[in-house]
Nucleic acid binder design. Structure first.
Length: 481
RNA sequence: GCCGCUAUCGUCUAACGGUUAGGACACGGGGUUCUCAAUCCUGUAAUAGGAGUUCGAUUCUCCUUAGCGGUACCA
């Protein structure tokens, strides 16, 4: 049974990179009928916050990456928060200590920092020499009795090499001599990441560790801890990093990277999932648009590739547009209403009383929408009366100064006689305008700018019909003769 | 500095050692159209450099270069 996990530390929002890691874990689990587990790595007490955790959970849910085990999924949530599992880590640390696979190190952070600096100045690699590991039992006991603070380190053999067997990268070899003894417990007894991750992955029965490439260099250390603990080593898969425009790891300084910001901007979760899946992975065909179900059935770690991928908002936006076009009228309406409300284009009363009208105006813009938030600017003129022509519209207006009066006169006459039914309107308008010797391009453009105040938008007859007779007449009056 | 990873169009990527190096986004041209969009057709554009193995290398090996990641009592 495949068991994978996503293990964020609640020190900030869920960003694009974390979301992609979660997604790959999720897809792999679901593809293999396995379990996707969520664990909160909150051992950094300084930086962890409840707000971050809440946002991360909300982001995952929004993306549709619901977890099988984790917070909110069992009677006892404490299993999934590392700060609530401290006795577990301490038990394993005690065992290592008693087996002499770990030792107490009394060197202070200050001492070590000084040595590190010195080594750096001499352009030497710094490595802890393991001197406290040479202390006799009595010496160590004495120091402890003297009240000296200590960390716990796991001994690392200095000969031979450690091989990380990685599904995406193959064999990665590291000389053990480049590793130093690994700190697993701080002076305040809080366990360190490299230790808790191993203990938890084993205790939770994790079979595949899928995470970002930035963890690759930690892996040899973790393998040493697995071995010291006598634990089986899981399969590793280190996925390529997502990069910003400058090719460095995507981070806050590259602008908005929070998943929830994408939600606010009007991106669909299925579009973000679709795009993220294509970053570092590719299907065995040339398709680009996928639903979650399709991704699950196609996903394979073997097709994850090795190099980092730049995040391209343009492609995300394109994919978002495709998913928007695939929405039904009702779904799209539901999705757009919050944006219309937020921008003040419509009110809660409108939602109650003019639902069909709102739906109609949204559907008119469906094929044009790339992100949901654009709906407000695109359809504002359906909801207000006091708007003027924009610059482009004025140009069209001026350009047709010769015919515009006549156009409006005929248009006004037609709608007052036959109404604004779009089929009838189109038919009569063409006939009458031709009789008056006015070309379609001219009258269409003139009527369009008068009605909407802009040069682009849905079909002219759709606009007129949606406006209704009264509003059309008001617009004619505003610009008419 | 040291350790590790990576290298195909501008970007995301495909290609049992044999292809006119394919697709997608973006960009350009054209068809359709009342505009924009959508849609259809179409164009520009890539194997970082150098050795080697091989009949044949984008693909395997080595070197160089470049980029990235790690180098914490962060995760």
């Amino acid at each position: 049974m495949v068991r994978v996990r996503f293990a964020p530390s609640p020190t900030g929002y869920l960003h694009i990179g974390g979301a992609r890691t979660a997604l790959f874990n999720y897809l792999f689990a679901k593809h293999n009928d396995g379990k996707f587990i969520l664990r909160i790595e909150d051992t950094d007490k300084e930086r962890s916050t409840k707000e971050s955790e809440t946002e991360i959970l909300e982001s995952l849910k929004w993306l549709g990456l619901d977890w099988d085990e984790g917070p909110g999924k069992s009677a006892d949530d404490s299993l999934y928060y590392q700060t609530r599992r401290l006795p577990v880590y301490h038990r394993h640390a005690e065992k290592l200590l008693s087996e002499n696979k770990a030792y107490k190190c009394f060197c202070t952070k200050e001492e070590l920092d000084a040595e590190r600096k010195k080594a750096e100045a001499q352009k030497r690699a710094f490595k802890y020499d393991g001197r406290c590991g040479l202390l006799t039992k009595e010496q160590a006991a004495q120091k402890e009795a003297d009240g000296m603070p200590y960390v716990v380190r796991v001994r690392v053999a200095q000969t031979g090499e450690t091989i990380v067997n990685d599904i995406v990268r193959g064999e990665v070899k590291v000389q053990n001599s480049t590793l130093d003894d690994i700190i697993i417990l701080r002076t305040d007894k809080m366990p360190i990441y490299n230790f808790v991750v191993v203990v938890d992955d084993v205790e939770m029965g994790i079979t595949h560790v899928i995470r970002g490439e930035d963890h690759l260099s930690n892996t040899p250390k973790q393998i040493h801890i697995y071995k010291a603990l006598g634990f089986p080593i899981p399969q590793f898969a280190h996925i390529p990093l997502i990069l910003g425009a400058d090719k460095s790891k995507l981070s806050k300084r590259h602008g908005e990277t929070a998943v929830l910001r994408y939600k606010e901007s009007g991106y669909l979760p299925e579009a973000l999932v679709n795009y993220l899946a294509l970053l570092g992975w590719s299907p065995d065909n040339e398709d680009t648009i996928f639903s979650m179900e399709q991704l699950i059935s196609k996903f394979a770690l073997e097709r994850v590739h090795k190099s980092g991928a730049m995040f391209d908002n343009k492609k995300l936006t394109f994919i978002n547009g495709v998913h928007i076009r695939n929405k039904s009228a009702d779904e799209l309406t539901k999705l757009c209403i919050p944006y219309l409300l937020k921008s003040g284009v419509i009110t809660d009363d409108d939602v109650k009383n003019r639902h069909d009208f709102i739906k109609h105006t949204i559907v008119l813009q469906q094929e044009k929408l790339q992100v949901l938030s654009e709906i407000s600017d695109l359809s504002a003129y359906f909801y207000k009366d006091d708007y003027d022509m924009n610059e482009d519209a004025k140009k069209v207006w001026e350009k047709n100064a010769g015919e515009r009066g006549k156009v409006l006169e005929i248009f006004g006459k037609i709608i007052s006689e036959t109404g604004v039914d779009k089929a009838k309107l189109e038919e009569r308008l063409k006939v009458d305008m031709e009789a008056a010797g006015i070309k379609p391009k001219v009258f269409m453009h003139v009527i369009r700018v008068v009605l909407s105040g802009t040069t682009m938008g849905p079909g002219l007859f759709d606009i007129a019909e949606t406006f209704g007779l009264e509003k059309c007449m008001a617009r004619i009056k505003k610009y008419g003769c």
